[in-house]
């Protein structure tokens, strides 16, 4: 059984505090209104676990979805591989890399945090109003980095909380012991939050350095890639396929970050 399933089970098993609040909020989020515009791509057929896209076909679909051409800067970011796919979907000129400071051990927690954040930004708050609303929210007030996650230089009316996943290797510092590596990215038992502050983009020797997956909630699929250009292809995968056991990774987080609406 993969680690994120175990983490989700641990969160579900703790019958008090944040997990209970998350369960209630997740049910509310499940009945949220669907996105009004057509999805970027069709969902996967039920018998398929992934689909491969040529980069140019992905760019065409992305441009149709966003109603504008991808800029040269965005094309250069996309060419970075999976991390580029997530960067262009965050749609923020101020970001070089996807922020990891709101990372969680389970998708369920990430979805609850996303719903709580979107409930706040849907009121188009000022930064001060956002901070006050976070302090009152039963889920958000217990988490770290929520206030600094807001890009206060962007009009909050243009923001929406989104989700991506990151798979990676835990031994991020060669001076760490095996025990340190295996415990550093363990989710907090009460909040499920994962402290990614020590993460340094290091690969397990002989393997790919990481895999980012952008969560397309319109189609319940995850967008990632084989590697950077040249010969890059984009994958549209189910969560199960994206998260399948691979030697490269021993950790996976689900991260919430503010994306900019078009």
């Amino acid at each position: 059984m993969h680690k994120w399933f175990l983490r989700a089970a641990v969160v579900a098993a703790v019958g008090f505090g944040l997990p209970t609040l998350i369960a209630t909020t997740a049910q509310a989020a499940a009945v949220a209104a669907p996105s009004p515009r057509a999805p970027l791509a069709p969902p996967l057929a039920e018998d398929r676990s992934y689909r491969t896209w040529r980069v140019e076909d992905y760019v065409e679909a992305w441009e149709r979805y966003h109603g504008r051409e991808m800029t040269e800067d965005e094309r250069e970011n996309l060419a970075r591989g999976c991390i580029g796919v997530t960067v262009v979907n965050l749609n923020r000129e101020d970001l070089s890399n996807p922020p990891l400071n709101l990372s969680f051990g389970s998708l369920r927690t990430a979805e609850a945090v996303q719903a709580a954040l979107n409930k706040i930004v849907d009121t188009h708050p000022s930064p001060a109003q956002y901070e006050a609303a976070v302090a009152k929210d039963p889920i958000l007030k217990r988490l770290k980095n929520v206030v600094k996650a807001l890009p206060s230089w962007i009009d909050s009316a243009k923001l929406k909380a989104s989700i991506f996943s990151k798979r990676f290797y835990s031994w991020q510092n060669p001076d760490w012991s095996e025990e340190r590596a295996h415990t550093t990215y363990r989710p907090d038992r009460e909040t499920d939050q994962v402290d990614m502050s020590t993460y340094r983009y290091r690969a397990r020797p002989g393997y790919v350095n990481f895999d980012y997956g952008w969560f397309d909630q319109d189609t319940n699929t995850w967008w990632h890639a084989n590697h950077e250009e040249p010969r890059m292809v984009v994958y549209q995968s189910t969560l199960r396929h994206y998260s399948r056991p691979l030697q490269d990774f021993d950790e996976q987080v689900f991260t919430v970050a503010f994306a900019k609406k078009d």
């Binding site: 060419a79 970075r80 580029g84």
Partner: peptide
Amino acid sequence: STGPLPSHGV
């Protein structure tokens, strides 16, 4: 790339 703009690969 392992610089400030890491890219994806082995």
